[in-house]
Design a protein around this nucleic acid. Structure first.
Lengths: 118, 118
DNA sequence: AGGAGTGTGTAGTATATACTCCACGGTATA
DNA sequence: TATACCGTGGAGTATATACTACACACTCCT
């Protein structure tokens, strides 16, 4: 079930084809600040996904969305959690309310709030 | 800094005054499924806040809001996280967008979505 | 043949999380 | 004076998290 690992490997190999020599396990691990063998194991699901710091680093290196990658790892970023914790009741209500709403409804909120009709 | 512990103790003692004999450390601990000495230490900040299960149990026993209590413990409930993880990009956007919005703006969203003008 | 770069296997470590178990001393009650 | 709660102290445990360190085998290049 280690969707995370598979995804990272796939994405890395994809980039490796375009720019070989820059996306080896060793190179990426070095950039992400971890050991190559560790990354290798993660990619093959032999180790669970790494910590938040490392996931975000990987996301940036691989030009992926950090929140999406964190989600694949079964996590929610600390900074989002912090926002929720400041006003737990309100955010809990909003999130639960939006739980089953279609994507376009969420997009509408983002748009309307951003455009300041509030 | 263990705001959590202090709050629980305060709330428990409050209820103890109204209904003595039903809100001792031992009674509450038993209901919450933990050892009395553990609860005692938590209330005095000698131990960090307990796990999510236990916090939610305490919230119910003390008639408190689980999300608020979890927030005091520096946590966000797993079920909220699960909702976010299903559509990480969308929810991340919504939450960050609402970060600095006043309470009434969030309330308005809750209300409007609930009332189905969507 | 030698070196550079590739991925991977084995073993071990440090720290945090979430608790339990038992025993002690105080107060109140009958 | 015994028995029944009350809170608490000290020590120990189980599991998870997030990694490191090092060595090995293979391929490609010159």
């Amino acid at each position: 079930m280690s969707e995370f690992g598979e995804y990272v490997r796939q994405r890395r190999e994809e980039l490796q084809k375009v720019d070989p020599g820059s996306f080896s396990v060793r190179k990426i691990a070095a950039l992400a600040g971890i050991e190559p063998s560790y990354l290798s194991k993660i990619e093959r699901g032999q180790q669970p996904p790494p910590g938040e710091r490392t996931i975000i680093a990987l996301a940036n290196i691989l030009s992926e969305d950090p929140d999406a990658l964190l989600a694949m790892a079964g996590k929610v970023s600390e900074d989002l959690q912090k926002i929720i914790r400041r006003r737990p009741r309100l955010f809990a209500d909003v999130i639960r309310q939006l739980k089953d709403m279609p994507d376009h409804a969420l997009l509408r909120i983002v748009r309307e709030v951003r455009d300041g009709d509030w």
